[in-house]
Write a protein that binds this DNA or RNA. Structure first.
Length: 680
DNA sequence: ACCCCTCGAGTTCT
DNA sequence: CTCGAGGGGT
C-alpha cells in the first residue's frame, strides 16, 4: 500500500470507528456486530502499525476516553486496586500463613494457594458489560485511575468480547507488559529512527499505554496477562484457580506458570531459577489463598488483602561511590540529606541520587563521603543506600550534619523527639519560600497550567514573584516580558496569563491546602473547609483561635480528625503577621468558593456509637446504615463522639454520653434520622 | 500507656 | 513507596 492510500484508509477507518464507538457507548445503539467492529479495529491497527508516521493527534478514532482538556479522563474504581504485602524470605511466608490460620481459627488444616509470577508491568482494570469490553483504566493511586480504553482496545491479547457465558457486568484485572524481546526490537527501531529510547521494558510499556493517541499505542508491542477479579454482578467461581480457568475460557492469556502449589518455598526457588530465561521481567511471585469464600472472610487490612502476599526476589543491588551529600530544603523547612552518587545502573535505571532521610539514618549506617556503597531498588522504585561495602576503602571522616540552613544561614534545629532538622528561617529563607510556591501551584492545589516547578524557580529567583499573591497581581502585567524570555513565545505567555485568570476562582479546600501550612494536607484542608464553610468565616475563626483557650480554639479542636498538634500549627501560622498579610493580599486577588454543602446529610463525618440491645436492627445493619451516611462507627464514647444511639438495657456508655453532653438518640429516632441509608 | 490507622512529607526517574 | 507523627480508640 502506498503512503497516500494508507492515509486515506486510516482516515476512513478512523471516522468509521469513531462513529461506532459513539453509537455503542453514548447512544447504546450499535449498528454492527462485535465481530465486525473487531475486524475494523484490527484493520485499523494493522495499517497504523505499518505506517506509524501517519498517526496524528486529530484522528477521531484516537479520542475515545480522552479528557476534554487533553490527558486522560479520571475513572474511579468500583473496588479499589490495592497493593500487596511483601515477603522477602520463608519466615515472612510462614508468618503470613500463621496470620491466616489465626484469623480464620484454622489449626492444622492445609491452606491451598495459587502461585503466579509477579510481572513487572502496569496493573489495569477492564470492565465488561454483557461480555463486551467497555472500559479500561490504569491503577492510578488505587482509588482513581486514568481512562485508557481506546489504547487498551489495540492490545492483541485483550478480547473485545468474552467467549461464552459471563456475568452481565464484570471487572477483570491484569498486567500490561512488554516482553524482553519486543522491548529490544522496539528500542532498536526507535534508535535507528532517531526516536526516544526506553530504559527498560516496564517504562516502555508505560509509555506505550499512556499515549494520548491510541494509534501510537497500536504500534507498540504490548502484552497482557489477566490475573484477578474485581467486581462481578454474578458468581464466577469458588476458587481462584477456577477463576483463572474462566479467564482462559473467556479468551484471556493467563500466565502459563501459574498453578496451585503445596510448597511455596520450592515454587519460589523454581521460578527464581527460571527467571532469567523467561520472556518477560518478573520481580517475585504472588501467592493467593485459593478458596474465595475464605478470601472474603479474611478481607483487608489497610491497603492490602490478608489473603495474598507478594514474595519478592532479592532486590537488585549495585555498588558505586558516594561523591558527596547535599542538603535539600523542603517547604516546611525540613533539611534532607541526599546522596550524590557516581551514576550506576540498578535494575535498568541509572541512579544518580538517593535520599539518606536524616542524620540518624546516616549515623546508623555509618555512611561517609568517599565510601563505596551498596545501592538497591527493592520492590519499590525509589533507590536506597544500603550501606558501605564491607572491606572496601572507607571515606575519611564521619559526616557532620550542618547546624545552619545551607540556603539562608538560619539555625537548623531539631524539635525534641523528632528526627528531622528544620531551618528556622521561615519566610526569611528564600529556599523555603520557593518550595512553598511550588506547592502552591502543584496538582492538588492551584494547578496552574504552564506554571510548573521549573518556571516557578526561575520566576522566583529572578524576583518576578516573591509570594503567591504575585502570581495573580504581577505575572499578568508581565506578559510582554515573559513572551520574550528564552523558551517562551507570545502564545505561551498568553496561555499562561489565561491559565492564571482561570484560577482566580477556587474552592475553599484547595485554597487552604495550597497555603502549605504544616500538617494541613489535602484531607485536613477538606475537614477545615467543610467545618467553616466560607473563607471569611475560616479566616475570622483562625485569627480568633490564635488565643489558647479561646472558644474558636476549642471549636477547632472539636473537629473530628483535628487534634492539638494541628490546631497549634494553624494558630502559629495566624499568629505571624506576615503570614496574615500575605494571605489577605492573596485572597484579595481571588474568588474563593464556599465549601460544597456537606455531602449527603447531617451524619457525614460524624462519629456514632451504638449501645444497648437494638430491637429492630442488627448491629451490622446499624453500622452499615451509619457508614452509608458517611459516619464513623466506634465502640466507646469520648468527647469526639457526636451521637450515641441507645437501645434497651443500655449501661455505662449511655451514662457517659449524658455526662459528656453528647447527643443521645433512641433507636426509633436513629431510624428516622438515618432512614435513607437503611437496608445496606 | 498502649495499638491501629490515616495523613503528611519527602523522594527518584522517565 | 516509605517513614514518622498525629489522632482516636481501648
Amino acid at each position: 500500500m502506498s503512503e497516500v492510500k494508507a492515509r486515506t484508509e486510516l482516515l476512513r477507518l478512523g471516522m468509521e470507528l469513531a462513529r461506532h464507538d459513539r453509537l455503542y457507548h453514548a447512544e447504546d445503539a450499535p449498528e454492527i456486530t462485535d465481530a465486525a467492529y473487531d475486524a475494523l479495529r484490527r484493520r485499523y491497527n494493522d495499517v497504523a502499525a505499518a505506517f506509524p508516521g501517519l498517526v496524528g493527534a486529530d484522528d477521531p478514532a484516537a479520542k475515545v476516553g480522552a479528557a476534554p482538556g487533553g490527558g486522560f479522563a479520571k475513572i474511579r474504581h468500583g473496588v479499589p486496586m490495592l497493593s500487596l504485602d511483601n515477603a522477602f524470605g520463608p519466615e515472612d511466608f510462614t508468618e503470613f500463613c500463621a496470620r491466616i490460620r489465626r484469623f480464620l481459627g484454622l489449626d492444622e488444616a492445609a491452606l491451598g494457594f495459587v502461585a503466579e509470577p509477579k510481572i513487572d508491568g502496569l496493573s489495569i482494570s477492564l470492565t465488561y458489560e454483557h461480555g463486551r469490553f467497555v472500559q479500561g483504566a490504569t491503577r492510578g493511586d488505587g482509588t482513581e485511575g486514568e481512562d485508557v480504553t481506546a489504547n487498551l482496545r489495540t492490545l492483541k491479547d485483550l478480547p473485545l468480547r468474552l467467549k461464552g457465558e459471563a456475568p452481565a457486568r464484570i471487572e477483570i484485572r491484569g498486567e500490561v507488559f512488554m516482553t524482553k524481546a519486543d522491548f529490544l526490537a522496539m528500542n532498536a527501531a526507535q534508535e535507528s529512527a532517531g526516536e526516544k529510547m526506553f530504559a527498560n521494558p516496564r517504562n516502555a510499556a508505560a509509555g506505550g499505554l499512556r499515549q494520548l493517541d491510541a494509534r501510537i499505542t497500536a504500534t507498540r508491542p504490548l502484552s497482557l496477562f489477566a490475573y484477578a477479579m474485581g467486581e462481578a454482578s454474578g458468581p464466577v467461581a469458588e476458587t481462584h484457580w477456577e477463576y483463572l480457568e474462566r479467564l482462559r475460557a473467556w479468551g484471556f492469556t493467563v500466565n502459563p506458570l501459574s498453578r496451585r502449589i503445596a510448597d511455596a518455598a520450592a515454587f519460589q526457588a523454581e521460578v527464581g531459577a527460571a527467571r532469567a530465561g523467561l520472556a518477560y521481567d518478573i520481580d517475585g511471585v504472588v501467592y493467593k489463598l485459593d478458596d474465595l469464600a475464605l478470601q472474603r472472610r479474611l478481607g483487608f487490612v489497610g491497603r492490602a488483602p490478608r489473603w495474598a502476599i507478594a514474595w519478592k526476589f532479592p532486590a537488585e543491588q549495585a555498588t558505586t561511590v558516594l561523591e558527596g551529600i547535599d542538603i535539600q530544603l523542603g517547604r516546611t523547612g525540613a533539611l534532607t540529606p541526599v546522596a550524590r552518587l557516581v551514576p550506576v545502573n540498578v535494575g535498568g535505571v541509572l541512579v544518580r541520587n538517593a535520599t539518606l532521610h536524616n542524620a540518624d539514618e546516616i549515623a546508623r549506617k555509618d555512611i561517609r563521603i568517599g565510601d563505596t556503597v551498596i545501592i538497591q531498588r527493592a520492590g519499590d522504585v525509589i533507590p536506597q543506600v544500603v550501606g558501605p561495602v564491607e572491606g572496601a576503602p572507607r571515606g575519611a571522616a564521619a559526616y557532620v550534619f550542618p547546624a545552619v540552613c545551607p540556603a539562608c544561614g538560619s539555625a537548623a534545629v531539631r524539635a525534641p523527639g523528632e528526627v528531622v532538622m528544620r531551618c528556622t528561617g521561615g519566610l526569611a529563607c528564600p529556599a523555603q519560600v520557593e518550595e512553598r510556591l511550588i506547592h502552591f501551584v502543584s496538582r492538588g492545589a492551584f494547578d496552574i497550567e504552564g506554571l510548573g516547578e521549573k518556571t516557578i524557580r526561575e520566576f522566583h529567583e529572578e524576583g518576578l514573584i516573591g509570594g503567591p499573591a504575585d502570581i495573580f497581581s504581577r505575572l499578568p502585567l508581565l506578559e510582554a516580558e515573559i513572551a520574550v524570555r528564552e523558551g517562551w513565545g507570545a502564545l505561551s505567555a498568553r496561555n499562561l496569563v489565561a491559565a492564571i485568570a482561570q484560577r482566580r476562582g477556587i474552592g475553599l479546600a484547595r485554597f487552604i491546602f495550597a497555603l502549605g501550612i504544616r500538617r494541613i494536607g489535602e484531607a485536613n484542608a477538606k475537614l477545615l473547609a467543610r467545618h467553616y464553610g466560607s473563607y471569611a468565616n475560616w479566616r475570622a475563626q483562625m485569627a480568633a483561635a490564635v488565643v489558647i483557650g479561646s472558644e474558636a480554639r476549642s471549636d477547632l479542636g472539636s473537629i473530628l480528625g483535628i487534634g492539638p498538634a494541628i490546631a497549634e500549627e494553624l494558630a502559629e501560622f495566624f499568629a505571624e503577621p506576615r503570614n496574615v498579610a500575605a494571605l489577605d493580599a492573596l485572597a484579595a486577588e481571588l474568588t474563593i468558593a464556599d465549601a460544597e454543602a456537606r455531602g449527603g446529610g447531617e451524619l457525614t463525618g460524624k462519629s456514632v456509637v451504638f449501645t444497648g440491645t437494638l430491637e429492630t436492627l442488627t448491629r451490622p445493619e446499624a453500622k452499615a446504615m451509619a457508614e452509608k451516611m458517611g459516619a464513623r462507627v466506634t465502640d466507646s464514647v469520648s468527647k469526639k463522639t457526636d451521637l450515641v444511639v441507645v437501645g434497651a438495657d443500655a449501661g455505662s456508655k449511655a451514662r457517659k454520653a449524658v455526662e459528656l453532653g453528647v447527643r443521645v438518640l433512641s433507636e426509633a429516632e436513629w431510624r428516622a434520622l438515618a432512614g435513607g441509608g437503611g437496608g445496606g
